[in-house]
C-alpha cells in the first residue's frame, strides 16, 4: 500500500518501510548527513540529518525516523538549519579540514554539508594537532580529518567482518583505532580498503591516487576484478588512460561494493615498464624484436609445416584462465577448426 509524507509542504508517496531520509533521497531532496550509510544503516551519531516534524517537540534524525503516512516534515526550517549549522561548525572547529589539498575534495560529505549550509569558514576554532599515520602500504590515515562517524568501523566489523577497527578512548578523545591502537601496518589489518570506501571525508585515503587527480576529473568505468573467481564488480576511476583509484561498485552483484586488497589496490601492473610491447622471436640465446607480420607468418608457417609432417595432434595449446572468454573461445576455435586437433586445455582443475 502506498503511503504519503509531506516534505517541505510537498507530498511524496512511498511503499513499505522507509526512513524519512530514504524517501527524501529518492525524491532528490538533499538532507545533509554524515554518519548514515545505506550499507550499515543509521548510526545516529552525527545528528546532522535532523528534520522538524509536525507534532514532535525535538528535531528528529531523518536517518532513523520511520516515514509514516501523513507525516509532515520540514528539512529547511530555521530550527533545522541552525542545528545543522551548529553541528557542522563544531565538526569544522578542530582538525584540518582544508579542501585545497584534500584528496576527497569534490567527493566529501562534510564539504557538501558545509556548502549547503553556507558555511564559508568555521566561526570558531579550537587548535588541536594529530599526526597522519603513514605505515599502511595502500591506506593513509589522517585523524585530523576524521569526524568519528564510525562508518569505517561498521564496515570493518559488520560488512567485511575483519574486526580490526573500533573506537578507542572517549568523548573528545574518541579515535578510530586499529587493534590495540597500533600503526596500520603492524596491525591485523589486511588493507581491504572497505574503510576507505565507507569514509565520508578525507580521513582514509587510497595512497596510490594521491595528488594525481581531483575527484571530478575522473570518470568511473565499471569492470570485473582480474584476480580470483568471485567476479567482484569494481569501478575504475579513470583520468586519461590512468586508473587513479578503484572502488567496489555499490549495489552490484555479487560483491555489493566490497573488495579485497588485491581487487582494490592491485591494479597498476598494467602500467609496468616491463610490459611486452612488440612481438619477439628467439635468436641465439635471446630474443629479437619482430614485426607482427613476421612473427605471425613464422608461427602460421611452422604450424602448417608440423601439421603436414606429423599431423595436427603434434600441436598442443594451453589457454589462459585469466584472460577474457572471447580469447579462450578463439584459441580453441583455432586449434579445432584451423589446426584440426582437440589438444587444447587450460589449468581448469587447479
Amino acid at each position: 500500500m502506498s503511503k504519503n509524507i509531506f516534505i517541505n509542504g510537498k507530498g511524496f508517496s512511498f511503499e513499505g518501510e522507509k526512513t524519512v531520509l530514504e524517501v527524501a533521497r529518492e525524491n532528490g531532496i538533499y538532507i545533509p548527513s554524515l554518519c548514515y550509510h545505506e550499507k550499515v544503516g543509521p548510526a545516529n551519531k552525527c545528528r546532522v540529518c535532523v528534520v522538524e516534524v509536525d507534532g514532535m517537540k525535538d528535531l528528529q534524525t531523518s536517518c532513523s525516523l520511520a516515514a509514516a503516512d501523513g507525516m509532515k516534515v520540514g528539512t529547511t526550517t530555521e530550527k533545522v538549519l541552525e542545528a545543522q549549522r551548529m553541528v557542522v561548525n563544531l565538526l569544522l572547529s578542530n582538525g584540518n579540514h582544508n579542501c585545497l589539498s584534500c584528496e576527497a575534495n569534490g567527493d566529501c560529505e562534510l564539504q557538501d554539508a558545509a556548502y549547503y549550509l553556507g558555511i564559508e569558514r568555521p566561526p570558531f576554532v579550537i587548535e588541536e594537532h594529530k599526526e597522519r599515520e603513514d605505515s599502511g602500504a595502500f591506506i593513509l590515515r589522517d585523524p585530523e580529518k576524521c569526524i568519528q562517524c564510525g562508518r569505517c568501523i561498521e564496515g570493518c566489523n559488520r560488512l567485511v567482518v575483519n574486526e580490526v577497527l573500533d573506537f578507542g578512548y572517549r568523548g573528545g578523545h574518541t579515535e578510530v583505532v586499529w587493534d590495540n591502537d597500533m600503526p596500520l601496518d603492524d596491525s591485523n589489518c589486511v588493507e581491504c580498503g572497505e574503510c576507505v570506501q565507507m569514509c565520508p571525508v578525507g580521513a582514509l585515503i587510497a595512497k596510490k591516487g594521491m595528488g594525481r587527480a581531483r575527484r571530478w576529473e575522473t570518470k568511473p568505468v565499471r569492470t570485473t576484478c582480474p584476480y580470483c573467481g568471485v567476479g567482484c564488480q569494481l569501478d575504475l576511476h579513470v583520468k586519461d588512460d590512468q586508473i587513479i583509484r578503484v572502488t567496489g561498485t555499490e549495489g552490484a552483484q555479487p560483491n555489493m561494493g566490497h573488495l579485497c586488497v588485491k581487487g582494490r589496490f592491485g591494479y597498476d601492473f598494467i602500467y609496468s615498464d616491463e610490459r611486452l610491447t612488440t612481438p619477439l622471436i628467439r635468436e641465439n640465446d635471446g630474443f629479437r624484436e619482430a614485426s607482427w607480420d613476421e612473427a605471425l607468418n613464422l608461427v602460421a608457417g611452422k604450424f602448417t609445416q608440423i601439421i603436414e609432417e606429423s599431423g595436427p595432434d603434434a600441436i598442443a595449446g594451453v589457454s589462459c584462465a585469466r584472460s577474457i572468454n572471447e580469447d579462450s573461445y578463439n584459441m580453441q576455435k583455432l586449434f579445432r577448426s584451423v589446426i584440426g586437433t582437440n589438444n587444447i586445455d587450460h589449468c581448469a582443475r587447479t
Binding site: V221, R222, T223, T224, P226, G229, V230, G231, Q233, L236, V238, D241, Q242, I243, Q253, P254, Y267, F269, I270, R275, L276, T277, T278, P279, L280, I281, R282, F287, A295, L298, V299, S323, I324, N325, E326, D327
Partner: peptide, 29 residues
C-alpha cells in the same frame, strides 16, 4: 615466438565467475 598481449583494461570482453555469472570487462586504455 612471444606475442605481446593486451592486458586487463586494454580490451573489452567478459569473464565468467565461479557462480556462472558472465560479467563485462571494459577497456580504458
Amino acid at each position: 615466438v612471444i606475442f605481446p598481449s593486451a592486458a586487463w583494461c586494454e580490451d573489452d570482453g567478459t569473464f565468467a565467475s565461479s557462480e556462472r555469472r558472465v560479467n563485462r570487462v571494459r577497456k580504458i586504455k
